[in-house]
Write a protein that binds this DNA or RNA. Structure first.
Length: 416
RNA sequence: CGGGGCGUAGUAUAGUGGUAGUAUACUUGCUUUGGGAGCAUGAGGUCCGAGUUCGAUUCUCGGCGCCCCGACCA
């Protein structure tokens, strides 16, 4: 893509009401635009990152048997009354809206009800199980206090998967698989090292739920980490009983602030019961379906990556989710050099490399500053220096390392 | 939902009971061209409503919005 076609612009200053690093850098770089508190538009660059994260999560979900679908955003009040969660006394941050015919609908708050109700249509035999449907969608919560840029919104984009299993053993087998899928996801988006499987409160059907918590000072949660074992305990469930149950030495625990980037939860038959989600087993006896839920907030992941991976100049995207693989920067006013840049742009594009080509008529210094801020991993600088030498100047955004490479060499690297 | 703070141009800020200033971004022109260039030029602003006042951006009240701490949550 030509940068002259990119209508967003970078800014030197962040709006004063944005305090967190993720909001500052994402707004300054032109990734997101704030519509109101807790509500952000994804601009072209931001959408590219979001789509990358989505694609990568999709791969991991499909890999463990996930089947993607899309539930409706307007949710049926009657269905929610079955689980009892329509009541404002239970869930006070619904967005509800009146229908012309006098009824009411809710803006998707979460998906357990929708899936449980839907699947009564398709599950009747043990042969129909297990299944793992999931979807990506916008979720709406009327938060009293949305905050911290993308970390906590009133409207946010998430992935929710639900597992429907015949019994607890089958559920637990999948639950363990999902942990690995989640680990893969966080490591692939570049925050694997900082992200811990964290024991959190489990509700009525299991002792614990599991959160994936990324350690950063920007975090809202407090967790206690056992670095040897590579696990953590959320402050909310930390006590002597839990510590001994998990076989942890109290002295090994280190307290850190962290962001909850994902969570997985055993639901048991909490939703199957009210919706009558049951199947016939081999003997023809009726059994309740055992459920689990598996969520990830994609915007929150994006914000977290920025919190963890950025420096004073801007964002440092990992290759896996960068908006483009390469940033081609024309740094000369010489028409011959521009021609060279155009050629390189065409070659890279034809080879299927996602490249942002800064063809704008502005000074090199401004382009470099913009490039640092936007944070594309590989920068190719076409200037007067190496013009005619057959070599390309390449700068690594993460390390700052500068090298000279042939176009072939560079292509191999970018494809690899 | 409790507590605190703040609303001045696209953005960041100054200031004042009497024509609202600076930087940046934007227009136009000339010069410049490897780390957010220089000079000139033009356009652009006091959140909304009520009150006090000859006169309110400034003072008072109400509303709305935003941020931070806490409670709650992906």
């Amino acid at each position: 893509m030509r940068q002259s076609q990119l209508f967003t612009k970078t800014r030197k200053d962040a709006p004063k009401d944005e305090v967190t690093k993720n909001a500052e850098l994402l707004i300054r770089g032109g990734f997101i635009h704030k519509e109101m508190a807790g509500v952000y538009t994804y601009l072209p660059l931001g959408l590219r990152v979001l789509n990358k994260i989505e694609g990568l999560i999709r791969e991991e979900m499909n890999n463990i048997g996930g089947v993607e679908m899309r539930t409706a955003v307007l949710q049926n009040k009657e269905i929610w009354e079955k689980s009892g969660r329509w009541d404002d006394a239970l869930v006070d941050n619904w967005f509800k809206t009146k229908l012309k015919n006098g009824g009411e609908a809710g803006l998707s708050f979460t998906n357990e009800e929708a899936y449980s109700n839907l699947l009564t249509q398709y599950i009747s035999s043990y042969k129909d199980l297990p299944i793992y449907p999931y979807d990506f969608k916008n979720i709406f919560r009327n938060e009293a206090r949305s905050k911290s840029g993308l970390l906590r919104g009133r409207e946010f984009y998430w992935k929710a998967m639900y597992s429907f299993s015949k019994d607890i053993a089958e559920h637990e087998e999948f639950y363990e698989k999902s942990k690995q899928a989640y680990r893969n996801i966080f490591s692939r988006v570049g925050i694997g090292e900082e992200t811990y499987l964290t024991f959190a409160s489990g509700g009525s059907f299991s002792k614990f739920s599991h959160e994936f918590q990324t350690v950063t000072p920007a975090g809202e949660d407090e967790i206690y980490i056992d670095k040897k074992k590579g696990i953590a305990i959320n402050k909310e469930v930390l006590n002597d009983e839990v510590i001994s149950l998990l076989g942890i030495n109290k002295d090994d625990l280190v307290k850190e602030k962290a962001i909850e980037v994902g969570n997985i939860f055993s639901l048991g038959t909490k939703f199957s019961e009210p919706f009558g989600l049951a199947y016939k087993d081999v003997k023809g006896d009726k059994q309740m379906v055992v459920m689990g839920s598996y969520g990830i907030g994609l915007g929150r992941v994006m914000g977290t990556v920025v919190e963890v991976l950025s420096d004073e100049k801007g964002i440092i995207w990992p290759r896996s989710i960068a908006p483009f693989k390469a940033h081609l920067v024309l740094a000369s006013v010489d028409p011959k050099v521009r021609e060279l840049a155009e050629d390189v742009y065409k070659t890279l594009s034809n080879e299927g490399i996602e490249v942002l080509y800064d063809d704008r008529d502005v000074r090199a210094g401004e382009k470099f500053a913009d490039s640092d801020l936007i944070g594309i991993p590989t920068r190719i600088i076409i200037g007067d220096k190496l013009s005619g030498s057959g070599m390309l100047e390449v700068k690594n955004r993460a390390t700052g390392e500068v090298s000279e490479k042939t176009l072939e060499h560079l292509l191999r690297e970018l494809k690899g």
